[in-house]
Design a protein around this nucleic acid. Structure first.
Lengths: 183, 183
DNA sequence: CACAAGTTTCAATAATTATTGAAACTTGTG
DNA sequence: CACAAGTTTCAATAATTATTGAAACTTGTG
């Protein structure tokens, strides 16, 4: 139900240019996340906190993203779990505030750590199990199947090595190395 | 509606061990894909073709994955688009058969190429647009916002450099380099 | 310990995304 | 060019995933 009087629309003329730019960034980040198996609200909230100069409360997040209290609560907790956002308690205030980790290298590390743990590590375990299944080496497709499996395991190992390396990387180390490698 | 007489269940005793292992691999690949914004059928079909010694027809794919003709047709076309699967026409046969690209380095390249094009390149364009928006540098959050934006652009550039490098990499080059880098 | 302020949980529901299957289309062959 | 074999399209529907919002819970304070 589009409401032309609703002042939260993107191109609303009563937003400051900076606020408009921020809103666009939040939208962009949310849209991008769809391709990566991350839910839109989480990506938008992360984006919003990234470009906020001050800490935001659950109320602020609800208002700015137009989401329910439940959604805001669960999503903020998930961001805390990932290590992408910290609690910022204001002295004398009951209400909790949140700030994003702003160092993008640190952000990258958090994301790699979580996704590696949830996906790559899990997949490697499954592949190992699969490769260990008994089978008859004289069966026609046996050799083919185990070759493909081995190749995938090798690939997973390479990915693991690279991701672990990136996580350990110091600031600038990464870019230096890669530039040297690829140029 | 589970049907205990249905012989397509994973652990069916009338499947050869190898067939069971293949089926498990197809399942694993399909489940993993959920985290990556790739639909399950596409991942399962790719997995099935990867571990098939022979070319498979649309009929074969429908039967083995228990999917409709429409789904099979659209998914196989998508795999062709990505360059992950080739047509294999059998002389004297009307029906089309399909084989997967089996070189995993080549597979990696295809996937990187497509995802980079669809996501990273698109995102970089949006970020550039966003950074070019006019704004008042004296506004309180202006500096903060543009710093974050710049950091993200830098990160995107690094990712671009790395991915482009991987795409150009020769066989073994990649693993050699990475092992040298990270060990 | 009663209460107010705030947070979390989770069943119901909405929104989104994937799949079906029948009709339309294409293509090769007698 | 009629027909059979096969393929593609796409509106309807099913399955999945995200969100709401009210009730239950927690926590700090007078």
């Amino acid at each position: 139900m589009p409401d032309p009087t609703n002042p939260t629309a993107d191109s609303s003329p009563d937003l400051l240019p900076l606020e408009q730019a921020k809103a666009q960034f939040v939208q962009l980040w949310g849209a991008t996340s769809a391709n990566w198996g991350i839910n839109r609200t989480m990506a938008q909230m992360h984006a919003l906190l990234l470009v906020s100069a001050e800490a935001l409360s659950t109320e602020d997040l609800m208002a700015q993203l137009q989401i329910s209290r439940g959604n805001a609560s669960m999503t903020v907790r998930e961001l805390l779990d990932w290590g992408l956002v910290y609690k910022a308690l204001k002295p004398g205030e009951r209400r909790e505030y949140f700030v994003a980790e702003k160092d993008m290298l640190q952000v990258t590390r958090c994301i790699i750590r979580e996704r590696k743990r949830r996906e790559l590590d899990a997949m490697k375990r499954s592949l190992d199990q699969l490769a260990a299944l008994p089978g008859d080496p004289t069966e026609p497709g046996y050799r083919e199947f185990h070759r493909v499996l081995g190749d995938i395991q090798q690939l997973a190992d390479s990915a693991d090595t690279v991701l672990t390396g990136v996580m350990k990387a110091e600031k600038n180390w990464l870019i230096d190395k890669f530039l040297r490698m690829f140029t």
